[in-house]
Design a protein around this nucleic acid. Structure first.
Lengths: 149, 149
DNA sequence: AATAACGTTTACGTTAACGTAAACCAGGAG
DNA sequence: CTCCTGGTTTACGTTAACGTAAACGTTATT
C-alpha cells in the first residue's frame, strides 16, 4: 500500500537513505493541498523537487519543507516569510546568527499573537458585561409587565 | 483647537447630545486611515455618515463604529466579519440571541488564536533546542581544532 | 488505435482591501 | 474672475495565493 515511486535509494555516501520518492499527487493527498498549490510553491522558490523527465519527484526533505510552509500558513505568515524561515531552518549557510534571527522573527510573531489575545479578551469581557445588562433589563421589563409569562 | 464642523446639536428629543460633527479628513487623521478607506468602508456598508450636500459628516457614533472596524482588523477579521459584528453590537434588532451569537463568534476566534499560540510555542522550543545543539556542535568543533581561538 | 489516468506548461480569473489617478464641483481669499 | 483647499464620483491598478481551464505529452491498458 506504499505509494512510493520507483525504488528506494540506498546511496553509498552514508547517513540515512530512507529517501522515499513521491509523486505530486502523493504529496497533495498526504498534505491535503492541491497540485496547483505545490507547483505554485515551487514557482515561488519554496520547493525544489527533482525531475524525472518532465515529472516532479518529491523527497522526504521536500515533505519537511512543505510541513514548514503549511505551519507558516497556520501561523499567518505569508509565503515570502515562510520562504525566509525555511531558508534559515535549512542547514546550508548554517551559522548561529541565522538561527537567532529566525528565533527573533518568530518571537515577533508571538508578540503580535499575545497582543491579539489580550484584545480579544477585552472584547469578550466587554460583551459579557453587556450581556448581563441586557438580561437585567429584560427581567426588569418582564416585571414591569407583571409576570407576562 | 476643536476640529468640529458647524455647530453642536442640542436635540430636543433627549438623551445626551454631544453629537460633534467631523469631516472625512478629521476622521482620517484621528484614526490614521485614508479618506479612501473611509469611503470604502461606507461602500461596504460599515459606515453611514450623514450628508451635507455632497460632503460626508461623521458623528460620534460613526467614530465608535470605526473603532470597532479597526479593532476587528487588528484581530484579523475581514471587513465582512466586522460588518456582522457591528450589526450585532448595534442596539437595533436588539435581542439577546444576537449578543450570544456575537460572543460565540468571538470565542471561535479566540480558539484560533490560542491554537496559534500553542503552535508558535512549539516552534520556538524546537528552535531553541536546535540552537543548543548547534552551540554544542560548535564548541566540540573548536575543541577538535585544539582551541582555535 | 483509442481511452484513461496522470503529468506538464501557459495563462487568464478571483477575492480583499484599499492605492492611485482623473475629472469635476463648491466656496472662500485675494 | 481666478486660484486654492477640500470634497466627490468613477474607475482602473495592485498584491497574495491559489482556482480554473485549455492544450498537450506519457504510459499502460483495453
Amino acid at each position: 500500500m506504499k505509494k512510493t515511486i520507483g525504488k528506494a535509494q540506498s546511496s553509498a555516501d552514508g547517513v540515512q537513505a530512507v529517501d522515499e520518492r513521491y509523486s505530486i499527487r502523493d504529496l497533495a493527498k498526504d498534505f491535503a493541498v492541491t497540485t496547483r498549490a505545490l507547483r505554485f510553491y515551487e514557482e515561488r522558490g519554496l520547493l525544489r523537487p527533482q525531475r524525472k523527465g518532465q515529472s516532479r519527484i518529491y523527497s522526504a526533505a521536500d515533505r519537511v519543507r512543505l510541513t514548514l510552509i503549511l505551519r507558516g500558513k497556520r501561523l499567518g505568515f505569508t509565503l515570502d516569510e515562510s520562504a525566509e524561515l525555511i531558508a534559515m531552518y535549512d542547514p546550508s549557510g548554517n551559522n548561529a546568527g541565522q538561527l537567532q534571527a529566525l528565533i527573533d522573527k518568530i518571537q515577533e510573531k508571538q508578540q503580535r499573537i499575545n497582543a491579539q489575545k489580550r484584545e480579544i479578551e477585552l472584547m469578550l469581557s466587554d460583551l459579557k458585561e453587556w450581556e448581563q445588562r441586557s438580561l437585567k433589563a429584560l427581567t426588569e421589563l418582564s416585571r414591569g409587565t407583571k409576570q407576562n409569562q
